[in-house]
Amino acid sequence: MVSLEWLLLTYKVPAEPARKRVSIWRKLKGMGAVYLQGGVCLLPKTDDHLRRLKMLENEIAEAEGEALLLATVGLDQKQQEKVVARFNADRDDEYKEFIEKCLAFEAEIAEETRVSHFTFAELEENEQELMKFRNWIEKIRKLDFYGAPRAGEAAERLQRSEAILDAYAHNVFAAQEENRPPDASKRP
């Protein structure tokens, strides 16, 4: 395995106001950082991450906190694998939540189908939900630096959800056509 490099950020900020501490935490999680412990996190070493962490370092200083930013590597293959496993575990947790939401989405469509609730409004609502899923999985993929094991399962679940919604859409269009009055010009 190629030696991987990471950016290590250690920081501490005053407990109050909490919003500043929470803002920093959210930004780090939004970048895909893994926390080794409170106030100590890692990101893969990229120019983008370095730039964003330097900006965050300034934000920490403005919040009257302290930060130290270092480049680091694992001492050996085993340490490197532990770090990659931490990143993959975080992404797998996100993929798991994504999969659960897709399953709930599919169950909702199954219930709508069971009760023959085939309306354009319901279809539009479900299409919007599916669009949220597509955006969500793309956000997770952008943070999946090392190919988390559940990535494939999540992609397959999204495809299944899309297929189920497509079948539901066909039912909606068929139901709407059934409710239209017959066209007088097409009568024998």
Results as ranks from 00 to 15, higher is better:
171 N>K: 13
108 E>S: 13
84 V>W: 02
18 A>M: 04
122 E>A: 14
158 L>M: 09
42 L>D: 08
103 L>N: 15
170 H>N: 11
52 R>Y: 05
15 A>G: 08
83 V>H: 06
136 W>Y: 14
178 E>S: 12
95 Y>P: 12
82 K>S: 15
16 E>G: 07
110 A>L: 01
67 A>E: 10
129 E>T: 13
118 F>H: 04
179 N>W: 15
182 P>F: 14
117 H>Y: 09
126 N>P: 12
87 F>L: 04
47 D>T: 10
6 W>N: 01
174 A>Q: 13
92 D>L: 07
100 E>C: 00
172 V>H: 12
148 A>W: 01
82 K>H: 10
82 K>C: 13
159 Q>T: 15
186 K>F: 14
87 F>I: 00
142 K>M: 08
182 P>Y: 08
129 E>A: 07
176 Q>C: 04
89 A>H: 09
92 D>T: 04
86 R>E: 00
129 E>R: 11
8 L>E: 09
7 L>M: 03
176 Q>D: 11
49 H>V: 03
11 Y>D: 08
97 E>Y: 12
157 R>T: 15
28 L>D: 00
28 L>W: 10
101 K>S: 04
97 E>T: 14
65 G>T: 06
27 K>V: 00
25 W>P: 05
66 E>P: 07
95 Y>L: 03
165 L>Q: 06
84 V>Y: 01
158 L>V: 11
118 F>K: 00
151 A>Y: 02
97 E>F: 02
27 K>T: 14
92 D>G: 13
26 R>C: 09
11 Y>I: 03
30 G>Y: 01
29 K>F: 02
130 L>G: 08
141 R>H: 15
19 R>N: 10
35 Y>N: 06
150 R>G: 02
106 E>L: 12
117 H>S: 07
62 E>D: 14
133 F>G: 03
162 E>Y: 02
117 H>V: 08
8 L>A: 13
110 A>H: 14
143 L>H: 05
126 N>M: 10
81 E>A: 09
147 G>W: 10
169 A>W: 12
58 N>D: 14
46 T>K: 03
21 R>N: 06
51 R>G: 01
54 K>M: 11
142 K>G: 04
56 L>D: 09
41 C>G: 07
149 P>M: 08
166 D>N: 14
28 L>F: 10
16 E>P: 04
62 E>Q: 09
139 K>I: 02
148 A>E: 08
137 I>H: 04
14 P>R: 01
50 L>S: 06
185 S>M: 05
186 K>I: 14
134 R>D: 06
41 C>Q: 03
35 Y>C: 07
24 I>P: 15
73 V>S: 14
188 P>N: 12
22 V>S: 05
51 R>N: 09
153 E>K: 12
15 A>R: 06
178 E>M: 12
46 T>N: 04
152 G>N: 15
184 A>G: 02
63 A>M: 00
5 E>V: 08
33 A>W: 02
41 C>S: 14
23 S>A: 15
158 L>I: 13
10 T>N: 08
133 F>V: 11
180 R>D: 07
165 L>R: 09
65 G>H: 02
143 L>I: 06
20 K>V: 09
183 D>L: 05
139 K>V: 00
102 C>H: 03
17 P>Q: 09
7 L>E: 02
110 A>K: 11
82 K>A: 13
74 G>I: 06
64 E>S: 01
37 Q>F: 13
98 F>E: 03
144 D>V: 14
29 K>R: 01
107 A>H: 09
